[in-house]
């Protein structure tokens, strides 16, 4: 792995994040985090609450800007982009999977999957591309269903199709099985593993579930805003 290593898809150097809560009440959520994630990897980020896990996920997802440090996503320095530039990066490079699926309640499965394409710079054939992704996640027969007509596992699979539809550089999954029972949770995990294995999709999982984390190739543990060393499997 040392020789002939491809460039990391995520390259983070000395990232810090300080929240100013007013007065001298500063919270140091990240205290100098550096990490590399390579294409095709499936990495789990773990840590107790308050460890800076969510803050790091927001940084990786380009949802928030760091106080200091550099973040290169797919070779692009994103740590000093403005809001609209970050929106474009999120649209092209990142596929999000949330714990609570975050589907639009009044839209069908296809319309939900179409959503990222509508904000992209190529809004053509979006329905066809959305249907293709739903077929990939095994929901070819649920195209016109609304979220309330789908089970939790199916809803999360719609969300996975939505995350994949723009062919992003990374999939960022925040507790993807947190709202599911163990059977459908495992189905979702199996789908993610299959995508990682067969399509070499880079997946970053944020979880506190050890059983989920151990299915990843490696685990990064956060504690008190720092990465605990030697946690590679």
């Amino acid at each position: 792995m040392i020789e002939n290593t491809p460039a990391p898809v995520i390259k983070i150097r000395d990232l810090t994040k300080v929240f100013h809560l007013g007065g001298s009440n500063d919270v140091h959520a990240l205290r100098g985090v550096s990490l590399d994630i390579y294409p095709g990897e499936m990495v789990a980020i773990m840590g107790p609450s308050g460890s800076g896990k969510s803050t790091l996920m927001n940084m990786i997802g380009c949802l928030d800007s760091p106080t200091s440090g550099d973040y290169y996503l797919d070779g692009l320095l994103v740590s000093n982009l403005d809001d609209d530039e970050l929106a474009v990066v999120r649209n092209r490079k990142i596929g999000f999977i949330f714990q609570k699926y975050n589907l639009l309640a009044r839209a069908t499965a296809v319309e939900n999957v179409e959503l990222p394409l509508r904000y992209s710079d190529d809004p053509t054939n979006i329905t066809e591309r959305a249907i293709e992704m739903l077929q990939l996640v095994g929901l070819g027969d649920r195209l016109k269903h609304q979220p309330n007509e789908l089970s939790g596992g199916q809803q999360q699979r719609v969300a996975i199709a939505r995350a994949l539809v723009n062919h992003p550089a990374i999939i960022l999954a925040d507790e993807p099985t947190g709202n599911l029972d163990s059977v459908s949770g495992q189905e979702v995990m199996d789908l993610l593993l299959k995508l990682n294995r067969e399509k070499s999709t880079t997946i970053v999982l944020v979880t506190h579930d050890k059983d989920v984390a151990k299915q990843a190739q490696r685990t990064i543990r956060l504690f008190d805003g720092k990465i605990m060393e030697g946690e590679q499997r």
Binding site: A87, F98, Y119
Partner: peptide, 16 residues
């Protein structure tokens, strides 16, 4: 608010 957050996460710009 949640929906707006989701749309922004998926790439919606301020103008959208």
């Amino acid at each position: 608010t949640n929906e707006i957050g989701l749309r922004k996460a998926l790439g919606a710009r301020k103008g959208d």
